[in-house]
Amino acid sequence: MRRKVIFRNRWLPYLLLAPQLGVTLVFFIWPSLQAVWQSFLREDMFGLSSTFVWFDNYRVVLADPGYMAAVRRTAVFSVAVALAALMPALLLAVMVDRMLKGVAFWRTILVLPYAIAPAVAGVLFLFMFNPSVGVVARMLTAAGVDWNPRLDGTDAMILVVLAAAWKQISYNFLFFLAGLQAIPKSLLEAAAIDGAGGWTRFRTIVLPLLSPVTFFLVTVNVVYAFFDTFGVIHAVTQGGPAKATEILVYKAWYDGIIATDFGRSAAQSVILMIVVIALTAVQFRYIDRRVQY
């Protein structure tokens, strides 16, 4: 991983690394260690003293039915967001890939939502699906659907999933399209000569060759749903109604910053840290596999 030809200098490399390492240590490593440390402490009611309580915070968190509900909710939310963001993206990518002309033009428009903040996407959907003024909500009501995300937990969940997925489709679309365009056309021609029809070609040639991209995108989408959707939840439902959309990140933030229960929030943070490390490891296995190709 190092070059063969390098420069010799005693202090310059350290000087060049100093800003990056400084910020990393002060704002990444130190707080993370603090989170681990705090997860073993419990503060008294007034926050004046704290005692070392080993795994008590974890025990409390994991025994809390509210937390376990949030775990299940996060799982449902992540899978739903990943599916809702991946399927349309693949469909669109396949269709754009079939176009002989104007690929760049369609791509330009379809990637636009990538530029939109998750929270802003949430606001757009909140407006469209607002039961009293929303355009889409009116259509739903007119169609006889009883729609009210402010009161109904399922409606609220559907709303945040849609908003979170809508923003992510563009990202997935771009990667699927890149993956499709990397498939040599000669392979498809060979399959056509072998007698494979359009659907068979897609199923037996395109999908398998796309599988590394798909696998990569699944992990990216799960990470996105776990962590980057905080803004969507905070802007659209504040975790409500009745915690129906409170996912783990939102709960960790709420318990720590709003309820100021540092020990339990820290324990939740450490659990999330383990999730990120696991997901990152999975993602890097994908890179290993790709290197082998």
Partner: peptide
């Protein structure tokens, strides 16, 4: 990291690399 060889080079690299796994969301309060 790429153009020099110096004691602690790998440690520095991994310290930077590890931040991939530490988004704000997992260390909010501290």
């Amino acid at each position: 990291v790429v153009f020099f060889s110096f004691p602690g080079r790998m440690l520095a690299f991994w310290t930077i690399f590890i931040t991939l796994m530490l988004p704000v969301e997992v260390r909010i309060v501290p």
